[in-house]
Amino acid sequence: MAGLSMKNSAIRGIVSAVPAHSEGMDGLAQAFGEEETRRIARAIGVHARRISRPEQCASDLCFHAAARLLSELGWAKDSVDAMIFVSQTFDYICPATSCVLHGRLGLSKTCAAFDISLGCSGYVYGLWNAASLIASGCRRVLLLVGDTVSKCISPLDKSTKPLFGDAGTATALEFEEGPVMHFELGTDGTGYKHLIIPAGGFRQRHTTEGRSQREDGNVRCDEDVYMDGAEIFTFTLREVPPMLKRVLVSANWDLKDIDAFVFHQANRFILGHLSNKMKLPPESVPFSLEEFGNTSSASIPLTISHRLRSLLQSKSARLVLGGFGIGFSWGAVALETGPMLLPELEVVQ
């Protein structure tokens, strides 16, 4: 959908939470070889990733982020009208993880709670939904966005193992007269097979086959993430530049008006090429993937928490946020936001 303008929603704060355990690239040399590991690290721009403990879910990271956000904002729990959980690494097949989180956070029984199953584009879709809820009468909305993709990765797949890390985030939105968010959203469902975990849902409940070498040379099973990097890259080149141009037109902004373009942290190569193609000033494109890898739906708010604290804590700034990937699904939002609460990262043991 093109040119959606949502009015009267303000972001009050963002908290991002990461697992305490950090994994560097050295440990991958045994599986992929030292030279190949160095080459991969150089191309994707990842030096370390935060990896969740086996029993630690995306909802746990989001819970810590949300509890801190509510506490630091001084929001009473019964003042939250709706909570959205965006993730593709949920707690259970059912019920919705948002209901589990609602109980853990002790939110009011009049609070609406629901899940959205999206990855790379999930934060933008979450903001759109939150702003839509506010437009429909909610005053305060909690948007929890996070993933623990590391749990679905084959240790012998060099296209995914060095790339993905875990994180959970919480964003607080509130009714305020004035602010406008300009959205561009899109989908190309014909690309769904190019980034997928084939088994574990209801199309294929389980796989009986163990990990084996696949056509692309990587070793994995159908319960692991499969990613076709070339398909993802060509889709990005095809869809993202026009999306960003359209959102700038909607907001009536030029490139020079933007303080930061915060993209889903796909990988350094893709973002570098995209930035050059769009002629974006390098200083306006922050990265967090060096330290955290590609954290799926959490990567945009994590990058804001990690890289834009000094900008957004004290004043407002013009941001363009762009998420694109699994689905294929994409979304961008142009918004003027801040000052807001942006504490240091929450590290969860």
Partner: peptide, 13 residues
């Protein structure tokens, strides 16, 4: 796979 990404980027540029 990395060379293929670089090749696609070269074609675009």
């Amino acid at each position: 796979s990395l060379a293929k990404l670089s090749f696609i980027a070269m074609g675009d540029v």
